[in-house]
């Protein structure tokens, strides 16, 4: 239950951040986020459940999100108002700042090893 305890702590911290409204233009640009915190949020907020802990995706539950995620504005729009099977995450439960951290985490995911170097996938 370690992840769970962490999750609660983060949720409380995130709650504090909600008070400060994000600047209007922050949606257009890629906001600076904390990848380390984003990793925790990606787990605690349940993104990992459908997209995998490394955001590698699954054909069964949710597409790959990283590395090279879609533009932040599009990602944010999708998370708030998903058009398919994904559950919605409003700013009440995932603040824009949290999302920025998640985004930083997604950007920080390494590229996979080159296919030619993986013997088992030849």
């Amino acid at each position: 239950m370690k992840t769970f305890a962490v999750a609660l702590a983060i949720a409380a911290a995130a709650g504090a951040q909600i008070q400060t409204p994000a600047p209007a233009q922050s949606r257009a640009a890629t906001p600076a986020g904390n990848a380390e915190n984003g990793k925790k949020l990606f787990a605690s907020d349940g993104c990992y459940e459908c997209h995998g802990r490394e955001a590698q995706g699954s054909t069964a539950t949710g597409p790959r999100l990283a590395p090279r995620p879609m533009a932040f504005a599009a990602l944010s729009r999708y998370v708030r108002q998903p058009t398919g099977q994904m559950p919605p995450y409003t700013s009440k439960v995932v603040s824009d700042a949290d999302l920025a951290d998640i985004y930083a985490f997604l950007q920080s995911r390494p590229e996979p090893p080159p296919l030619e170097t993986i013997q088992l996938l030849k």
Binding site: A7, L8, P87, P88, V93
Partner: peptide, 27 residues
């Protein structure tokens, strides 16, 4: 079931960090 619970929490706009309660086999 973890995913189902996450769905419910998302839909009900609360408690999105609690989907492991009653659904995980750890600890």
């Amino acid at each position: 079931e973890v995913m189902h619970l996450q769905r419910m929490a998302g839909r009900h706009n609360r408690g999105i960090t609690r989907a492991s309660i009653g659904t995980t086999i750890d600890n």
